[in-house]
Design a protein around this nucleic acid. Structure first.
Length: 594
RNA sequence: GGCCCCGUGGCGCAACUGAAUAGCGCAUCAGAUUUCGGCUCUGAGGGUUACAGGUUUGAAUCCUGUCGGGGUCACCA
């Protein structure tokens, strides 16, 4: 039990004794605000009804009790209904000493770990990844890290949408005008090459529509009847019929895309444990549709289409199988959900998918519940907002999409320019420099995308780009390098420092830092509960910022008081460890120099 | 139109899920470095938390309504 929980428990005990409050009364224990004296604050208002006394008096009485019952409470003061508790210096210093000596594990694992699958990325195979995918990838990767840090067993999955009309369009255009072009002979990244043909298709297709309209056809009809579209649909039929030539081309072109996507994943630093392909899973859902029909969860209409009536649940009727017997998106997802369970026996399944699909996942969960799947209640849609440009949404057709590779390249470039401007890295080799630019550029990008609450929409302005100063990834990285620099100056590892003497006093900043280090597990729990890496990002920043402020006016190596010096060395080592661990949850690497 | 999400200083974000005078960064202004790394630190100005009611000892947070922005309601994925 941590100190906060003990304070809460003892406070309730005291209030029971003094005022006879009910056992399940909850009292908020929070960090004491800067302007007051203390470490933790108990809000006593919830006791006023039972006590029938003034809040000040209650706080005074509880404070007295707590000082008796908790040895670590050194002093207290009362401001209105707020009881501010100050813990002993010994307590904080010992906490650091324990971490430092390895007498206490940094991470508290959950008592009952879950088996969790986190599905993210899930790209189409007809185009490269863009900034929206980057947010998706970082969110998924980070939440998987956070859950694993909590002690859960996590499988990272990528469900690839590799079949359908979209890829046929690229294939058709390549067949018609590709002249055997490949990533190798053209020097073009595979995903970009396939996208080029997709764009070609769309251009020609639009041209055909225009001509048909010019000949007097209605636009909607022209869209349906354009010869190119017909050809693409014919190709899809051949694909479904297993036509060897079509399948071969499909495999080849998808292969190009995978190669391209993998490069992007690699440069982003994300990875997966399991890949699923819709071409493998799209038929699977049909068995469950039949099961649902037998159980009466679904019903069949005269035309043969299968539906699920969700009107009783406040939703509408949802198609789960087309009249021609082919599967829709929902059929696939039902099948994939089952497959995931068969493969891993997961009890929680997280889908990192944009918020435009909230309805879809609401329905999916409901259907799985109706099918009485054991994992149904564990389905969670980690929904996140779109990234907009100052001009509005990113649109493929208008060419306003921010490409992921370009973005990463540009971030690296800004990092390089910044670094060269500051000229503090002369000692680094060319290879180290390249690695550094990558770290800094990606650090800035990842922090920028992850610091915002996932559910919020965000605007990315390419003109203003991404800051490297203030509340940013590089700020965190910079403060880490300062600690590393102290270590080099010291001449031996900070890890070897043992805290043996208790300093007389701690500064406000030192206390603050101790509390922050102490609250890591609480922060992780909050990040898990809210499915929000932003909580971690915030924590990293606050920790780095508080360190920076501490470092500005507290000497470390130069400190003459031996007890203080030693404690500070241990403290910054713990900050360094915690910072690098927390940043790693966001996929951010902290460099030794910059 | 039905349902869902969002609205916090000029801009970008916080606020531990109901508590103290709503925090931080950018930008603006004023300071700090021959000292462990200035991509830094200290300070100033800037807010009726979209608006109007309500619940509560206490509301940015909960409820109702209004306004504004977005999403979604396909035999697309």
């Amino acid at each position: 039990m941590n100190i906060k929980e003990r304070i809460e428990q003892e406070a309730i005990k005291a209030a029971q004794k003094l005022y006879g409050i009910e056992e399940n009364t909850s009292v908020p224990v929070q960090k004491t605000r800067k302007e007051f004296e203390g470490d933790y604050t108990l809000v006593v208002f919830p006791f006023t009804k039972a006590a029938r006394k003034k809040p000040e008096q209650i706080a005074e009485e509880i404070g007295h009790e707590l000082q008796e019952s908790i040895a670590e409470v050194e002093a207290y003061n009362v401001v209105k209904g707020f009881l501010n508790l100050k813990l002993t210096t010994d307590f904080w210093v010992n906490e650091i000493a324990l971490l430092q000596s390895g007498g206490k594990q940094r991470l508290e694992k959950v008592a009952a770990p879950d088996k969790i699958m986190v599905e993210f990325s899930s790209p189409n195979t007809n185009k490269p990844l863009h900034l929206g995918h980057v947010r998706n990838n970082l969110l998924g990767y980070s939440i998987a890290n956070i859950l694993a840090a909590r002690g859960h067993e996590v499988v990272k999955a990528n469900l690839i949408n590799d079949r359908g009309i979209h890829i046929c369009k690229s294939m058709l255009a390549w067949q018609k005008s590709g002249k055997g072009e490949t990533p190798e002979n053209s020097g073009t990244k595979g995903d970009k090459l396939v996208a080029k043909y997709y764009v070609d298709f769309e251009r020609e297709y639009q041209e055909e529509i225009k001509q048909l309209v010019a000949q007097g056809m209605e636009k909607d009809q022209a869209k349906r009847e354009a010869p190119l579209l017909k050809e693409a649909q014919e190709m899809l039929r051949k694909w479904e019929a297993g036509d060897p030539e079509v399948l071969s081309l499909w495999k080849t072109m998808n292969g190009w895309v995978y190669e391209g996507h993998n490069k992007t994943y690699e440069s982003l630093g994300v990875s997966f444990d399991q890949f699923y392909y819709e071409s493998n899973t799209y038929l699977l859902g049909k068995d469950l549709i039949n099961e649902g029909l037998e159980k009466g969860v679904f019903y069949k209409r005269e035309d043969g289409s299968v539906w699920c009536d969700l009107t009783a649940d406040g939703l509408d009727e949802k198609l789960v199988l087309r009249s021609d017997g082919t599967s829709v998106y929902m059929t696939q997802d039902i099948g994939t959900a089952e497959l995931k369970y068969q493969d891993y026996h997961i009890n929680r399944s997280i889908y990192v998918v944009g918020d435009e699909q909230e309805y879809h996942f609401k329905v999916l969960k409901l259907i799985m519940q109706k099918l009485q799947r054991p994992y149904a209640n564990g389905i969670y849609h980690l929904s996140y907002g779109m990234i907009d440009l100052p001009t509005g949404r990113m649109k493929t057709r208008e060419g306003t999409v921010v490409d992921a590779d370009d973005m990463i390249f540009e971030m690296r470039d800004v990092a390089r320019k910044q670094t060269e401007l500051l000229g503090k890295t002369e000692s680094l080799s060319e290879q180290e420099l390249q690695a550094l630019y990558t770290n800094l550029g990606l650090g800035a990008l990842k922090y920028f995308l992850l610091k915002v609450d996932p559910k919020k929409r965000m605007v990315f302005n390419p003109e203003e780009s991404i800051d490297f100063q203030g509340n940013t990834g590089p700020f965190i990285q910079y403060n880490f390098t300062r600690i590393k620099s102290v270590e080099r100056k010291l001449g031996h590892h900070l890890a070897s420092i043992a805290v043996e003497q208790i300093p007389d006093t701690l500064s406000a900043q030192e206390r603050e830092l101790c509390m922050m280090l102490y609250s890591l597990n609480e922060v992780l729990a909050e990040a898990e509960n809210n499915y929000s890496p932003a909580v971690i990002a915030n924590y990293c920043y606050e920790l780095a910022k508080t360190f920076s402020s501490f470092y500005a006016d507290s000497p470390v190596i130069r400190e003459e008081d031996a007890a203080k010096r030693n404690f500070r060395l241990a403290l910054i080592h713990q900050i360094e460890q915690t910072l690098s661990f927390s940043a790693s949850l966001l996929g951010i690497t902290l460099p030794e120099y910059m």
